Simulated scan of single mutants.
Amino acid sequence: MISIEKLSRRGFLNMGAAVGASLLLPRTGLIGAARAAAPLPAVAEENAVIGFGHVGPVTDEGWTWAHHQGVLAVQKAFPKLKKVLEVENVPYSADATRIYRQFVSEGANLIFDTSSTGDFLHEVVKRAPDVGFMECDGRTTMDNLGWYYLNHWYPTYVVGVAAGHLSKSGKLGYVASFPVPSVFSGTNAFLMGARSVNPNATLQAVVINSWFDPQAAAQAGTALIDNGCDFLFGIMDEAAYLQVAEKRGVWAAMWNTDIRRYGPNAYVSSIIIDFKDFYVDQVKKRLAGQWTSSENLFAMGKGIDRDAWGEKVPADVAKAADEVRQKIINGWSPFTGEIKDSTGKVRVEAGKTMTDLDLYYWDWSIEGVSGLSA
């Protein structure tokens, strides 16, 4: 029998100095590549302990819910595991260090930090060389620490194409969490997709300093609509601005999961994430003595994609966007220069294509984006 232990933590999301520091770490290695360190030794399934630390509640129907589906997949694939440790609402503070130290003290063989806690995690990694660690949206590697994330900018560009067709005003709104690379790449990709249809489209962002704050997200969505935006996008872990869009009669696209039931008439699509196969594969390697730290960015169609189109999305709009999606899957990249930043400075020269690591570390806004600065 698997022992599943859950703890709830308070102190939700204080973006401390460790997060800022982690964003400044140098780029490391290759996408999907394993480091040269020797694999950690094999562990019998019945003796293995696997830990998961989450940034939010597993009931959020968003980011943490998606990671929890991966936990359930691990439980199903490895029913003899000695223990699965799962902690919700891990804060960006010294409490995160204590949580991960507790995982180690309970015999964890592989630990997943499902939303980067930076140096708060790294302190534990350095003192537990026999334990494997994987940090979602991490920015560094060690012999026993790897990272993983999603190429969300590609499906975001596809949804942006749909937005370019659907928006009548050409004014797009974005409910942002923090000024971090995932938000810069999301806003930029979304507007670039829209501008492939309407070159005059613009995007206004409102930063609410949280990943999960329904009241603030609803207020931001309302303000954006009041300012003329007729298509809302964002990176929230809940449905608040979709509900606002539904009430106000504008379009909206979401993140993490299919939550169209909160706004069926407004819903265009969502950036859908799926960690199940990745988590099962990582645990399998750890048990078999084949696990080494690695760097992983999920390709579109393999852990990250757009959701099925909303029922009100016209067929011709869906077709146009999906033609672009197929081009990307076939190897085409829309992130080719010339690309200017919000001050008009050329950041990507004509003919140069941004790499996935360039996109992963994107920390500046393109021309046409307002309300967001590093």
Rank of each mutant, 00 (worst) to 15 (best):
G221M: 02
Q204D: 10
F212V: 13
V207I: 15
P214R: 07
V206W: 05
S210R: 03
A220T: 12
Q204P: 00
Q219M: 09
A205Q: 08
P199D: 05
N200D: 14
D213V: 05
G221D: 08
Q215C: 04
A194Y: 11
Q215G: 06
R195L: 06
Q204C: 01
S210T: 10
N209E: 13
G221T: 09
T222L: 03
L224T: 04
I225C: 05
W211Q: 06
T222S: 10
V197A: 11
T222R: 09
R195M: 05
L224W: 06
A216H: 01
A217W: 03
S210M: 03
L224I: 04
L203K: 09
L203S: 10
Q219N: 15
A218F: 07
T222D: 10
A216W: 02
Q215K: 11
G221N: 11
N200H: 08
R195S: 10
L203T: 12
P214M: 07
N200W: 00
V206C: 01
S196P: 14
N200M: 11
P199F: 04
S210Y: 03
A218H: 06
A205I: 09
R195P: 03
Q204V: 00
N198M: 01
I208Y: 04
A201H: 11
W211L: 14
A223I: 01
L224K: 05
I208N: 06
N198K: 04
V207S: 06
N209D: 15
Q204N: 10
A194M: 14
A220C: 08
